[in-house]
């Protein structure tokens, strides 16, 4: 399987801090790759660097064979990258509809695709004309994900989608992401919730101190408690 996204020797400096210290990995087309690691390991920085929100200070990033490490964020997005940030970053002053209208960059909203999205997230249909700022945390996360998939994207970068959500919402969200994955999406997802990672991930990358310290199949990591404890400091059983 070919890599849709590949990083080679990527370094990122933010101010005087050396955040990413030479990371190399690939994200295979049609696969979901989980990016795990302790807080501060550099997971969010990796997504931000791919998205161009922080400029890589060295190394190469390629998307579908095209070098993007010097590209501006809007150009990277226009190559077909959808981004769901950790903060959700919905436009709270805009309605649900207006948030999605902005996300549909290439034209008017596609009714069939909207129906598909509403199948996952019925609340968005119900609160279509409501201010996004009035939505609950879970609904904002739905909107943030819907914004990333309102038009077909080559690659989805999703940063901790389950963070801060109630357990019942997390279960439902995992179902939604699994359905998006079944439709053939290529996803690179940062996740602290090991259960979610296990459910969704095909492959896994573990980061520590700005470096990739483990790569392999998600299913194998899920079975290896000793490896989980060594890499993450917690086992799957204790880290739900």
């Amino acid at each position: 399987m070919t890599d849709l996204l590949s990083l080679a020797g990527v370094h990122t400096h933010v101010g005087r801090y050396h955040i990413l210290q030479g990371i190399d990995f690939g994200v295979a087309e049609g696969q979901t790759t989980m990016l795990l690691g302790r807080n501060g390991a550099g997971k969010t920085s990796t997504l931000r660097t791919i998205m161009g929100l922080w400029q890589a200070s060295a190394g190469q990033i390629s998307l579908d064979g095209q070098r993007i490490e010097r590209s501006a964020t809007p150009d990277i997005a226009r190559l077909g990258v959808g981004y769901v940030p950790e903060s959700m970053a919905v436009f709270s002053d805009l309605s649900v509809k207006e948030n999605l209208v902005l996300a549909a960059r290439d034209g008017p909203l596609d009714d069939a695709r909207l129906d598909w999205i509403f199948g996952f997230f019925p609340a968005l249909r119900r609160f279509w004309l409501s201010r996004a700022g009035a939505l609950s945390g879970g609904q904002k996360q739905m909107l943030s994900i819907a914004r990333a998939i309102v038009e077909p994207r080559k690659l989805l970068l999703i940063d901790e989608p389950t963070k801060g959500l109630a357990p019942a919402i997390v279960v439902a969200l995992i179902e939604c992401l699994a359905e998006i994955k079944r439709r053939g999406a290529t996803i690179l997802m940062v996740e602290q919730n090991f259960h979610a990672a296990q459910e969704l991930g095909d492959t896994v990358l573990v980061m520590d101190n700005g470096k990739i310290v483990h790569r392999g199949e998600m299913a194998l990591l899920a079975l290896d408690v000793a490896l989980q404890e060594r890499l993450l400091g917690l086992s799957l059983e204790t880290h739900q």
Partner: peptide, 10 residues
């Protein structure tokens, strides 16, 4: 409200 996210939308 959030110019970074507007850029991330392309």
């Amino acid at each position: 409200e959030n110019r970074e996210m507007v850029e991330a939308l392309g």
